[in-house]
Design a protein around this nucleic acid. Structure first.
Lengths: 258, 258
DNA sequence: TTAACATTTAACACATTGTTAATTAAAAGG
DNA sequence: CCTTTTAATTAACAATGTGTTAAATGTTAA
C-alpha cells in the first residue's frame, strides 16, 4: 500500500474520483401537546422529511420522485459538509444557528443510481416553534413531520431508511449521554419537561419515576435550580425551574449502576 | 434549495466534484509491560504512524515528506471507505479481521494541497502481538508506535494532528462507554488486566481503586466470571478469569451517580 | 367550600460505594 | 524449612443513593 500511496501523491487524477459529495440532514423536533392546562406536556420526537417532486424545474421526471427523503444537497469545494448542511437549512427553512452534528457517511457502492455519490449525514435539533415559523412562510414545499412509528411505514428515497435509523440511534444516545436535551428545551425548564424530552427516546424506569426523577435532578452536576424562578406551565403549584450549566459529563459503564 | 436539489438529479457533472476520497486509519494498540513476575501489567495506549517517504516510487520528491502520518489511501468506487481501510490494513500490515470504526470526516477546504480530497477517518484496535508479527515481516517501512505524550511533540502531515485528536476522544469514550475494551484483551482476563486497559484512558478514582473495581466487576451485567478458570499471570495467588458476554449496555447521565 | 392534581417533602428499607483491615495462596530467598 | 513478600480475596462499617409509599402544599375550578 505504501507504493500506491506515494504514487498517488502527485496525480490523483489517475484514479477515478467521486461524482458528487452531498450533505444530508435529519431534522429532529419534539412536538409538545398540552393535554390540559396546568399539566406536564406529552412530547413526541419527530423527523422532518421532504417529498421529492414529480418533475424537476425543467419538467423532466425526477429520480425517486414522490418518495419522502431527507433534505440535503451537494457540497461545494469551498465549504465543509457541515457548513453545507447549515446553509441548506437556512436556504430552505430560514433556520439558522441550530445545533448540528455529523453522525455518519454513506458510501455503499450503488446507493445512488446517479453515480458514485458520497453522503455525509448530520442531524439537526430544531425547537418546535422554529418549524412553525417556517411552515407559515413556505407552505409550497411538501414538508411533513413523522413520528418514529410513522417512519417505519414510509417508503423512502435512496438509502435514507438506513440513514434515518442511524440518526435515531445517535440522537437517542446523545440525548441520554450528553446534555444535548438542552437544545429541545427553553432556557429554563421544569423537571417534568426535561423528563418528557427524555421519555421520547427511552423507557428507563428510573426516568419514568416522577418522585425519583424530581429528586435526582437536584443533584445532577450539570443542572442547577434557578433560585426564585418558578412557573405554572406544568402545574397549578408554582414549580421550580432548572437550567443546564457547563460541566464536564464523564461516564463509564464500569462505574455506573446496572 | 429544493430547486438546486431537483436540478442536480440528472446532471451531477455540472457541479465540481471531489478530486479524491481517502480512508485514513488510526491504528491503536496497547503495549503491556510486565514490570516483574506475578504482578499486574502496566499498559500504555499507543498509535501506529508511518513516516512519509522522501521520494515516491518514480524518484520525485514527495509531498509532506519526512512527516509522520496516519496510514491510509484512496477509496475506489467499488468499496466503502471502511472496506478500503480494512483492505489497506491487510495489504500494508497483513492484519485482517480487526475491529474498525468510522469516527469522522475531514473536508475542510485546503486541508490537502493536492486538491479537494475528502478523508474518512477510522480507528482500528490491534492487539499488541499482531503488530509484532507485522514488524518482523516488513521492517523496511518506517513505522513507529507513539504514546499520547509523544504524539503532541510530533510534526504531522496534513491535518492529521486534528484527526488524531478526534481519534483519541472517540476511543476514550468508546472504551469507557462500550465494551470495546474487549478488543485489547485476551478472551479471558483478570480484573487487573481490564483495569489496566481502562486506566490508559482515564484517571477515574473509582477505576483506580483496586478493591472497589475487583468487587464491581462481579456485578457488571456484560461480564461474567468463568467458573474454575484461574491464572497466575498477575499474581502468585491464582486469580479469577472473566470474559465479556453479549448484553445490551444502556446508560444515561440522568440516572448515573456523579 | 371542596375536589382535583402536579409538585414537593418526608420517611424507611435496601443496595451500592469508599475505606480500612484481615486473610489467602503461592513464590522467592535465606 | 521458615519467613517475607505480594496480588487477590473477603469482611465489615459508615456514608450515600434509590425505590417506594405516604403525606403536605398551593393553586385552580366547580
Amino acid at each position: 500500500m505504501k507504493s500506491n500511496n506515494t504514487e498517488a501523491q502527485y496525480d490523483a487524477s489517475r484514479y477515478r474520483t467521486p461524482d458528487g459529495y452531498t450533505s444530508d440532514i435529519a431534522v429532529f423536533t419534539i412536538t409538545s401537546e398540552q393535554t390540559k392546562a396546568y399539566a406536564p406536556p406529552k412530547m413526541v420526537l419527530k423527523l422532518m422529511l421532504i417529498q421529492r417532486a414529480e418533475h424537476d424545474t425543467e419538467g423532466n421526471p425526477n429520480i425517486e420522485s414522490g418518495k419522502w427523503a431527507l433534505p440535503g444537497g451537494f457540497v461545494t469545494p469551498e465549504e465543509t459538509a457541515c457548513a453545507a448542511a447549515s446553509r441548506e437549512l437556512e436556504e430552505e427553512a430560514g433556520i439558522a444557528g441550530i445545533h448540528l452534528k455529523q453522525f455518519g457517511v454513506y458510501d455503499q457502492p450503488g446507493r445512488d443510481p446517479r453515480g458514485w455519490i458520497i453522503s455525509n449525514a448530520h442531524y439537526a435539533i430544531v425547537p418546535e416553534y422554529r418549524l412553525s415559523e417556517r411552515k407559515a412562510s413556505d407552505d409550497a414545499v411538501d414538508v411533513e413531520l413523522f413520528s418514529v412509528a410513522e417512519l417505519s411505514e414510509q417508503v423512502l428515497a435512496f438509502d435514507h431508511k438506513n440513514i434515518i435509523q442511524d440518526a435515531l440511534t445517535h440522537i437517542t444516545r446523545d440525548l441520554l449521554q450528553t446534555t444535548v436535551a438542552k437544545q429541545f428545551l427553553p432556557e429554563m425548564f421544569t423537571y417534568s419537561e426535561l423528563q418528557a424530552v427524555l421519555l421520547t427516546v427511552t423507557d428507563d424506569k428510573a426516568i419514568q419515576n416522577d418522585q425519583a426523577f424530581a429528586r435526582k435532578i437536584k443533584s445532577l452536576p450539570f443542572i442547577e435550580a434557578v433560585k426564585g424562578q418558578k412557573t405554572q406551565r406544568t402545574s397549578k403549584l408554582p414549580t421550580q425551574l432548572y437550567r443546564f450549566i457547563d460541566a464536564e459529563v464523564k461516564q463509564s459503564i464500569y462505574t455506573a449502576r446496572h
